[in-house]
């Protein structure tokens, strides 16, 4: 059995670990609230954008010179996967889940004979996927050191993707990120960005609504401006959901860690007290038997 001094040391070290995890939990909770409100603030724009796209996209999608961002290149050979993860660890299975999802997707696509390119947003995803797929990497983006991610950053990424599409570097673009279901549940999802999946307007009123709208300048010009914005807002939303999910997951992980540390302290304290009592009993027996011997 361990001696008393060693036990005391362990109890103290677990206690300080508990303090750290507890503090991290608090910090994550505060950041979660901020990330959530930022994600909520972005929602109205995305909703209105989807509504406009639905009425515009249907009008243009059929024509042969529809923009590439909407209909893609018409091929299905090269896939670009944009993987969004956190920049830091200590968040339970959060980063690993997206990583595993992306890895499976890459393997599936390659088994079908497709070419895969990978772009990561967030440091952890890059580290995870690099081990196996370093040769497929075309870009790594991190927001490390930034307090909050603004729309400009998302817009920059969207521009980069658009430029790649223009140069014919890929045919299909999929965004992989953790969808924020609730604080305790984040689910990795793959969302196809290019060709765009148009939000479906109810078919009956779609035709009537379209007939009503006037466009200034014309549909094609507006659509050409709207699509890159839509791409940017999708990425922005994914990044925000990712950060909200990250803090939610971190909060949970830290809560569990704090609880585990508490259990561990209880167990160690029990052992410590037993050992102490055993020592006292042994010493008493020694004294008594020594006295009897006299």
């Amino acid at each position: 059995m361990a001696n008393l001094k060693e036990l005391r040391g362990r109890i103290n070290s677990v206690k300080s670990t508990r303090k750290i995890t507890q503090a991290m939990k608090m910090v994550a909770a505060a950041k979660l609230r901020r990330a959530q409100s930022q994600a909520e603030a972005a929602r109205p724009y995305a909703e209105r954008m989807a509504r406009m796209l639905a009425s515009l996209g249907a009008a243009v999608a059929g024509s042969p010179d529809a923009p590439k961002l909407l209909v893609g290149t018409g091929r299905n050979q090269t896939h670009l996967l944009v993987v969004v993860t956190g920049d830091r660890g200590l968040a339970g299975p959060f980063n690993t889940n997206v990583g595993r999802f992306a890895r499976n997707r890459i393997r599936e696509l390659e088994a079908e004979g497709k070419t895969v390119k990978v772009m990561t947003i967030g440091r952890k995803g890059a580290a995870y996927l690099k081990r196996e797929f370093a040769s497929r990497f075309v870009g790594e983006i991190t927001f490390q050191g930034k307090r909050r991610v603004g729309f400009e950053e998302a817009d920059e990424i969207a521009q980069r993707i658009t430029a790649m599409l223009e140069h014919g570097e890929f045919d299909v673009c999929t965004l992989i990120y953790n969808q924020f279901r609730s604080v305790i549940s984040q689910v990795p999802v793959g969302q196809q960005l290019i060709p765009a999946e148009l939000p479906e307007a109810a078919p009956a009123n779609a035709t009537t609504a379209q007939a009503l709208y006037e466009y200034e300048p014309d549909e094609a010009t507006i659509l050409a401006q709207l699509l890159p914005k839509n791409l940017a807002i999708q990425i922005y939303r994914a990044v925000l959901e990712n950060s909200a999910g990250f803090f939610g997951s971190q909060m949970n992980a830290m809560d569990n860690a704090t609880r585990n540390a508490g259990d561990m302290i209880n167990k160690l304290t029990l052992t410590y007290n037993r050992t102490r009592q055993a020592n006292i009993t042994r010493e008493l027996i020694e004294i008594i038997s020594g006295a009897e011997a006299l």
């Binding site: 406009m52 515009l56 709208y213 006037e214 466009y215 200034e216 507006i222």
Partner: peptide, 14 residues
């Protein structure tokens, strides 16, 4: 520039 009053016909503008 465009002034919009209530009852304006439906439009989408850049």
């Amino acid at each position: 520039e465009m002034g919009v009053l209530p009852g304006q016909a439906p439009m989408i503008v850049a």
